[in-house]
């Protein structure tokens, strides 16, 4: 123990809180002392600053501080990694666009190389409506209940992966409006599902 800390431990808690108020204002110390267990350890140590008590306080604080650091580390890791991941994914998409009908250089587009397409496949490519991706009958019914615009917006979002901004540019509207249309449409779908499907399931299960 060095002089500075020896001086610190020779006072009562109340005195210290006045004298070293800026120390107790440190966020880590504040959170540390919020735990009654930790507060008790500190009080005990100040009452009788034996080397055992001080050691106990030191170790408890060390573990606490370590946990806090790990938590912080992981939180920033998650955040920055997700941002980075998105950047990488964007770059990838930008660089390797899926071009089907344009000729890259001398060769024809992919579509020419595919040769004769069978009709069903061709139709599938043409209709990219949401209902063509869905096998659930109730869901298809629910989709039919939406307005044309709601349907179109959902198709653009989920089939083509367009952003609100891009769709807004298409309709000459604000992105906020697109966002609310999407929200309403999803709400409608969810409501339909809850009302129809769950009610029926409950009936068939309960009698």
């Amino acid at each position: 123990m060095n002089q500075l800390t020896a001086h610190f431990f020779s006072h009562s808690l109340e005195f210290l809180q006045q004298q070293y108020s800026s120390f107790f204002e440190q966020p880590i110390i504040q959170v540390f002392l919020q735990n009654p267990e930790h507060m008790k350890i500190l009080r005990e140590t100040l009452d009788s600053p034996s080397s055992h008590n001080i050691y106990h306080l030191n170790e408890t604080f060390k573990i606490f501080y370590y946990r806090a650091k790990v938590y912080k580390y992981m939180c920033s890791l998650i955040y920055f990694f997700s941002v980075d991941f998105d950047k990488r994914a964007r770059k990838q998409r930008e660089r390797y666009r899926m071009v089907l009908d344009a000729a890259p250089r001398d060769t024809g587009g992919v579509i020419d190389r595919i040769g004769t397409l069978d009709l069903q496949l061709e139709n599938m490519g043409e209709t990219n409506e949401l209902s063509s991706h869905i096998s659930d009958e109730e869901m298809i019914k629910a989709l039919k209940n939406l307005t044309t615009k709601q349907n179109l917006v959902l198709t653009m979002i989920f089939s083509y992966g367009l952003s609100n901004k891009e769709i807004a540019a298409y309709f000459h509207e604000s992105p906020q409006n697109i966002s609310s249309i999407r929200k309403q449409a999803l709400k409608k779908l969810r409501k339909h599902y809850m009302d129809e499907v769950y009610a029926r399931k409950e009936k068939s299960h309960c009698g």
Partner: peptide, 30 residues
Amino acid sequence: EIKLKIIESYEKIAAIEAPNFEEFLTEFLT
């Protein structure tokens, strides 16, 4: 990928150093 990344960085996390109470106090006072 996030979960994988966290598990991969286990060594790094284990190597994080934290001061004990006295060390923290001394540093603060100085």
